[in-house]
Protein backbone atom coordinates (compact mmCIF):
# COMPACT_ATOMS: atom_id res chain seq x y z
CA UNK A 1 0.00 0.00 0.00
CA UNK A 2 1.12 3.54 -0.73
CA UNK A 3 -0.60 6.75 0.24
CA UNK A 4 -1.15 8.92 -2.82
CA UNK A 5 -2.52 12.45 -2.89
CA UNK A 6 -4.28 13.55 -6.06
CA UNK A 7 -4.90 17.28 -6.29
CA UNK A 8 -7.53 18.47 -8.73
CA UNK A 9 -7.08 21.61 -10.80
CA UNK A 10 -9.32 23.54 -8.39
CA UNK A 11 -7.23 22.47 -5.41
CA UNK A 12 -9.47 19.68 -4.12
CA UNK A 13 -7.29 17.01 -2.54
CA UNK A 14 -7.94 13.28 -2.49
CA UNK A 15 -5.57 11.21 -0.36
CA UNK A 16 -6.10 7.49 -0.83
CA UNK A 17 -4.35 4.20 -0.15
CA UNK A 18 -3.36 2.42 -3.37
CA UNK A 19 -2.28 -1.20 -3.57
CA UNK A 20 1.26 -1.68 -4.81
CA UNK A 21 1.32 -3.12 -8.30
CA UNK A 22 -1.58 -0.98 -9.49
CA UNK A 23 -0.86 2.10 -11.58
CA UNK A 24 -1.34 5.64 -10.31
CA UNK A 25 -4.18 5.88 -12.85
CA UNK A 26 -5.92 2.77 -11.44
CA UNK A 27 -5.53 4.19 -7.95
CA UNK A 28 -7.44 7.27 -9.07
CA UNK A 29 -10.21 5.51 -10.97
CA UNK A 30 -10.84 2.91 -8.26
CA UNK A 31 -10.95 5.62 -5.59
CA UNK A 32 -13.28 7.96 -7.46
CA UNK A 33 -10.74 10.71 -8.09
CA UNK A 34 -12.18 12.85 -10.90
CA UNK A 35 -10.04 14.26 -13.70
CA UNK A 36 -8.33 11.04 -14.74
CA UNK A 37 -10.41 9.51 -17.52
CA UNK A 38 -8.12 6.74 -18.77
CA UNK A 39 -10.28 6.02 -21.80
CA UNK A 40 -8.02 3.17 -22.95
CA UNK A 41 -7.87 1.50 -19.56
CA UNK A 42 -4.13 1.88 -19.17
CA UNK A 43 -2.76 0.84 -22.56
CA UNK A 44 -0.75 4.05 -23.03
CA UNK A 45 -2.94 4.72 -26.03
CA UNK A 46 -5.01 7.80 -25.28
CA UNK A 47 -3.28 10.36 -23.02
CA UNK A 48 -6.41 11.01 -20.94
CA UNK A 49 -4.69 10.13 -17.64
CA UNK A 50 -2.20 12.98 -17.79
CA UNK A 51 -0.90 14.17 -14.38
CA UNK A 52 1.80 16.51 -13.05
CA UNK A 53 4.14 14.76 -10.65
CA UNK A 54 5.10 16.85 -7.62
CA UNK A 55 8.69 18.07 -7.99
CA UNK A 56 9.83 16.18 -4.90
CA UNK A 57 8.67 12.90 -6.46
CA UNK A 58 9.94 13.22 -10.00
CA UNK A 59 13.04 11.16 -9.46
CA UNK A 60 11.26 8.32 -7.67
CA UNK A 61 8.60 7.99 -10.35
CA UNK A 62 11.27 7.61 -13.02
CA UNK A 63 11.19 8.96 -16.53
CA UNK A 64 8.66 8.21 -19.26
CA UNK A 65 9.36 5.62 -21.95
CA UNK A 66 9.82 6.80 -25.53
CA UNK A 67 6.25 5.68 -26.24
CA UNK A 68 4.85 7.65 -23.32
CA UNK A 69 6.93 10.68 -24.20
CA UNK A 70 5.55 10.73 -27.73
CA UNK A 71 2.00 10.56 -26.40
CA UNK A 72 2.69 13.36 -23.92
CA UNK A 73 4.16 15.54 -26.64
CA UNK A 74 0.67 15.94 -28.02
CA UNK A 75 -1.30 16.20 -24.80
CA UNK A 76 -2.65 19.59 -23.71
CA UNK A 77 -0.75 21.78 -21.27
CA UNK A 78 2.32 19.57 -21.01
CA UNK A 79 4.97 20.52 -18.45
CA UNK A 80 8.39 19.02 -17.71
CA UNK A 81 6.79 17.04 -14.84
CA UNK A 82 3.96 15.64 -16.97
CA UNK A 83 3.40 11.88 -16.94
CA UNK A 84 0.71 9.46 -18.04
CA UNK A 85 -0.46 8.06 -14.73
CA UNK A 86 -1.22 4.63 -16.26
CA UNK A 87 2.51 4.24 -16.79
CA UNK A 88 3.53 4.88 -13.15
CA UNK A 89 3.45 1.64 -11.16
CA UNK A 90 2.76 2.07 -7.46
CA UNK A 91 5.53 0.73 -5.20
CA UNK A 92 6.23 1.14 -1.50
CA UNK A 93 8.81 3.74 -2.48
CA UNK A 94 5.98 5.96 -3.74
CA UNK A 95 4.27 6.16 -0.33
CA UNK A 96 3.37 9.84 0.01
CA UNK A 97 3.33 10.59 -3.72
CA UNK A 98 1.60 13.79 -4.80
CA UNK A 99 0.24 14.30 -8.32
CA UNK A 100 -1.93 17.06 -9.80
CA UNK A 101 -4.48 16.72 -12.59
CA UNK A 102 -4.63 19.22 -15.46
CA UNK A 103 -7.62 21.43 -16.15
CA UNK A 104 -8.16 19.98 -19.60
CA UNK A 105 -9.33 16.63 -18.25
CA UNK A 106 -12.19 18.17 -16.25
Amino acid sequence: MAKITYIEHDGTEHTVEVKTGLSVMEGAVKNRVPGIDADCGGACACATCHVYVDEAWREKTGSPSAMEESMLDFADNVEPNSRLSCQIKVTDALDGLIVRTPQSQH
Partner: peptide, 12 residues
Protein backbone atom coordinates in the same frame (compact mmCIF):
# COMPACT_ATOMS: atom_id res chain seq x y z
CA UNK B 1 2.27 1.00 -35.47
CA UNK B 2 4.59 1.88 -32.57
CA UNK B 3 4.40 5.49 -33.66
CA UNK B 4 2.28 7.36 -31.11
CA UNK B 5 3.28 10.80 -32.32
CA UNK B 6 1.87 10.03 -35.76
CA UNK B 7 -1.33 8.82 -34.08
CA UNK B 8 -1.68 11.84 -31.79
CA UNK B 9 -0.66 14.31 -34.49
CA UNK B 10 -2.86 12.50 -37.02
CA UNK B 11 -5.86 12.87 -34.72
CA UNK B 12 -5.33 16.61 -34.62
Amino acid sequence: VNMPDAFMGGRM
